[in-house]
Design a protein around this nucleic acid. Structure first.
Lengths: 245, 245
DNA sequence: ACCTGAACACCGTTCAAGT
DNA sequence: ACCTGAACACCGTTCAAGT
């Protein structure tokens, strides 16, 4: 009687950090932030919960690794992969890399949009980046932006503030869009319907205390997240150029 | 034999939404985001966990109410308190209200700093605002900023994008500083020591792939969060003025 | 109407025991 | 070296039962 040891089967590799990260991303994409559980992960990987800890420090480590896999795939690698567990996800398209010979402003916009779109596709990434402002994925974005800010000719003494403002803005928008997506998901609503409901709430606010919010409610209903996001990037780029060169 | 019913004692009012929010803030300030627990809350209020649910929908509701109490106290009320549960916290100082007769730019900076300082004092507020981008506390900030953007003379068609960029930036920085504070707390380190460790890590990065980040590490060690934050606000204000008037 | 507190259905993490 | 899976110490939330 032939007994297959479970671990070595056709194609299915044994448990590894890489396979765990892959499964974590699948869980996060499929069921949102709350879908990532060591028990769900163990079931999907056909192993015990404890085994995962042999390859991963803890949940924070796992979430950071998942985030880094996405960010590394989406940003132009500075030259070559910097860490061992980078290419779990295949790069969707090389649009950012293609912008290498464009103006620094164009390149900054491309980086910003790459991050924005990545989070649009993986809302959990927004909270992950927000929670770990110093981890490797953030450093990747910082580095990409920084190289362009240098190319822009910003004085060295102003580079930190310029990059810092861009980075905080990009991650800030990302985090809030992620939160919106998460809230919409929790209510089993589509994002647009959810924002429509928010707009309804704003329109009904007290006219004496909230005149501006009431007036702007209609715009919330028809706004374009991506365009608004880019407008903010351009505000900052304009401000940086005016102040810093 | 005299038996005191526990509920009505000298000064100690019976359980109410207001007392619950007050206790929640104390817990959050004292022990961070993870310190807010229905069991800890019940103990502090000398009641059962279930009783709290009689006055509060769930944990999200409670967190939003706590956040709103702080934000409402810190921002200039548009005219008069808009909700019932506003003044749980007494306003620390009326610096923002005093800026009413200054220029719109100055007023925007004052609002931004008020939010920044509130989150500096209550790091959990950053994540709370980030998690609930449509709740009342955010609307308060939106309204305050919006009124100043109007006063600035921004064309109506551009007002949404201008306010949206400012709001996202302010809350984004807030959220990330909150995350830094939380991480530092989790490691039992002071914020500055934590950032110092991050800077050390940056300085040791691979020079080929991370030239910018390596170069900027020294600045991270000596930077001033508040000044950097304000620089970002000014970038956006400059951009808005250049593009929108 | 308001409160009690046990119970339910989960978590992340650890660890003795196996192979 | 790597994996198992029960156990531990928690969570938020519910709900029958009390006053």
């Amino acid at each position: 009687m032939i007994k297959n040891t479970r671990r070595v089967q056709r194609g299915e590799a044994s448990l590894s950090r890489e396979r765990i990260i892959e499964a974590a991303i699948a869980l996060l994409d499929g069921a949102g932030e709350s879908g990532l559980t060591f028990r769900a992960l163990a079931e999907r990987l056909a192993t015990g919960a404890g085994a995962i800890y042999y390859h991963v420090d803890n949940k924070t480590d796992l979430l950071n690794a998942a985030a880094d896999a996405i960010v590394a795939a989406v940003l132009p690698a500075p030259a070559a992969p910097a860490t061992g567990d980078a290419p779990v996800v295949t790069a969707p398209d090389a649009s950012v890399a293609a912008a290498a010979d464009a103006s620094p402003q164009t390149a900054v916009r491309a980086i910003a949009l790459a991050v924005f779109d990545a989070i649009d596709g993986h809302p959990w990434l927004g909270s992950a980046l927000m929670q770990a402002p110093s981890a490797l994925p953030m450093v990747r974005i910082l580095e990409s932006l920084g190289q362009q800010i240098r190319a822009l000719g910003v004085a060295e003494s102003a580079q930190w503030q310029a990059v810092s403002a861009l980075l905080h803005y990009i991650i800030g928008v990302a985090g809030q869009n992620a939160a919106n997506a998460q809230t919409a998901r929790a209510r089993n609503a589509v994002r647009d319907d959810f924002l429509g409901a928010v707009a309804d709430g704003w329109a009904q606010l007290d006219a004496v205390h909230f005149p501006f919010t009431r007036g702007i409610a209609a715009r919330l209903r028809v706004h374009d997240d991506r365009a608004d996001f880019l407008a903010g990037v351009d505000y900052i780029l304009t401000g940086v150029s005016t102040a810093g060169l």
